[in-house]
Amino acid sequence: MNKRRVTALGSATLDMIEALGRAGMFLFQASVGLPTRSGFHLWLRQMHFIGVMSLAIVLVSGLFIGMVLGLQGYTILVDFGAEDALGQMVALSLLRELAPVVAALLFAGRAGSALTAEIGLMKATEQLTSMEMIGVDPLRRVVAPRLWAGFVSLPLLTIGFSVVGIWGGYLVGVEWLGVFEGSYWSNMQGSVDFIEDIGNGLVKSLVFALVVTWIAVFQGYDLIPTSEGISRATTRTVVYSSLAVLGLDFVLTTLMFGEL
């Protein structure tokens, strides 16, 4: 009985390592290769599908989160008579943590799952195989543009999230609760460092972009081509990428802001 359990554990570990290896080779094969003119058009189309189409949900979420931060921050800071520091609090929490993480989670739900389902459907309807038979590598033609589009889109979405969130904090803090406008901005400018805060936030979102898109396209490419397989893979995309984003966020935060 025990022996069987050990065997099962061992084979599960081997399977996991093998899947990781497949995913790594997949990423390598899809991302190498020179950009071409037709590749640019495919990329553009995916930028529209992945980036522009996710814009609305990301911006609306950013606005609400900024407004909530403004409200919560005010009620806490006002007890210390430090409501002037509201701008600093809103900006730092958005730039360092909330914008990269929440935008990545929304991105995984909105664009990641759609990518998995789309590629999975192409696999199920033999479009990928037929592409291979025509002599076109689907990794180049289907996967690479999506990978690059995701990699570029998410940082842009994250910037949008921060900007709208800071504006949302301003709306609630300054316009509604009456924090002095000058101190909202000057306190923010005094404490936010371009490289340290904005730069590190962007580095985070680049890492998340790579991981989420990679998981999404790999799950689509590697799934079992049935309707059940597609729905499972879509779920896996959202679950794995959310966990990866949150876990990596901790690691990156430790590396970037740990010694402060």
Binding site: V152, W185, G190, F194
Partner: peptide, 23 residues
Amino acid sequence: GVGLFMLAGILGLVFLGLRVSGL
């Protein structure tokens, strides 16, 4: 649309740089 999206992203970064971090 994609052009606007990328332009908006770059403008957002400029806003963050000038207005938020006070560069």
